[in-house]
Amino acid sequence: MVMARYHRFFSLFFPKRWLPFILASLLALGFSLGLAQLSQAQSWLDLLFQGVQVLQLSNLSSGQEVRLGQQINQQLLQQGQVRLARNQPLNRYIDQIGQRLARTSARPDLPYTFQVVNDRNINAFATMGGFVYVNSGLVAAAENEAELASVMAHEIAHISARHAVNRLRDVALSQGLMTAAGLQESTLVRLGVELAFNLPMSREAELEADSLGLRNLIQAGYAPLGMITFMQKLQRRGSAAPEFLSTHPLTNNRILALQRAITPQQARRGEGLDPAAYQAQLQQFR
């Protein structure tokens, strides 16, 4: 029966007392269209089902997002796509910076996890649910702690703005994975793993992450100049652009937007600009 497959689905979103009326109305719709057009009625229902799935995926609770992030993280580690550094002092240092930023982020309620990846490439990325990954190569490339913190603030901003969740929704929709059969959690995890590396963020998402990240950096007590100088450093690399730019396309407009967001007097106001102190800190991890 056409209606039976939708009974459980609609019961998730509507009060039980409404179900007889809703299902009866949908059944009447099918009969009114006639048997010859019954398949069209079913297609309409499938589209409705898909639309509600899109809405449901767009409105994941924080708990659901964290659980998906945990599974994505587990897959990244099990598949060997991420090899974590075993340098515990370095891990503690990155976590200390990350938790400082997390407390002043737009979503301080998430249980953030900051991990150092044993990779010399200059890269960092984030997955949903508060998981941030920082390559050891990025730690070495930063001139000071403010530059390092600026990249981490940018990644936290992607999480705060739910960019990974939105990309997951868009890709699932474009690939036709949202059907009346349902979108399995395993499919969400697989897509999340793929998106962590392969698809660059949109220009709008990057600009939003820059803006939110800069605000977070300042609120956490770091000098905002660090975000600008690190981006300028990446831009100067030109053809030898680091891995970070494959998923975080850098444009001159992003740097100009950051420069317009702060005054020269504000740029150095805060902590983390001392390169000697930063190098002395890193020496402890070698």
Rank of each mutant, 00 (worst) to 15 (best):
L55W: 11
S39P: 05
L256W: 11
A181W: 00
T113H: 11
A223H: 10
F14M: 13
K16V: 10
R120D: 14
E65D: 08
A24E: 15
F244E: 03
V132C: 02
R67Q: 14
A28F: 10
A140H: 14
H163D: 13
I156N: 02
V165A: 11
N144H: 08
A180L: 02
L27H: 12
G69N: 01
N59Q: 11
E155C: 00
Q71A: 15
Q283Y: 01
Q284G: 04
V193N: 07
P224Q: 01
F10V: 09
F14W: 05
G221I: 07
L177P: 00
D119H: 13
Q81D: 14
L23R: 03
A241Y: 15
N87G: 06
L173C: 03
S211L: 11
P108W: 15
A280E: 12
F285G: 05
N198Q: 11
N253C: 02
R107P: 01
I72S: 04
I156A: 01
T104I: 00
L38Y: 07
E143T: 12
R203F: 02
Q284I: 02
T251C: 08
Q184R: 15
R100Q: 13
D109G: 04
Q235N: 09
V139K: 11
L256Q: 14
T247C: 03
Q235I: 04
D274S: 08
A141K: 07
G226N: 05
P108H: 10
K233C: 00
F131P: 03
A241P: 06
Y112C: 06
R8H: 14
R162V: 03
R169C: 05
L191S: 06
V134D: 10
L138S: 02
M231I: 05
M128P: 14
A267R: 13
P111S: 02
T187L: 13
E208Q: 13
G69R: 00
Q99W: 12
R269E: 15
M1I: 06
Q37I: 00
Q279V: 04
V193Y: 11
R254P: 08
A124T: 10
A164Q: 08
Y6P: 06
L12Q: 12
F197I: 14
I97Y: 07
L47H: 06
A276V: 15
G51C: 09
G213F: 01
E194N: 09
S11M: 09
I72D: 04
Q219N: 12
Q64K: 09
D109R: 08
A164P: 00
L195I: 05
D46F: 00
F197K: 12
A280P: 00
D210L: 04
A180Q: 08
N121A: 15
S58M: 09
N166E: 07
R286N: 14
A277I: 02
P249E: 11
L256H: 09
Q175D: 13
L29D: 06
E208F: 01
Q53G: 00
Y6M: 04
S25K: 04
L173T: 13
F31R: 10
L27Y: 11
L273E: 03
V52T: 06
L84S: 05
Y278N: 05
R100F: 06
A161V: 02
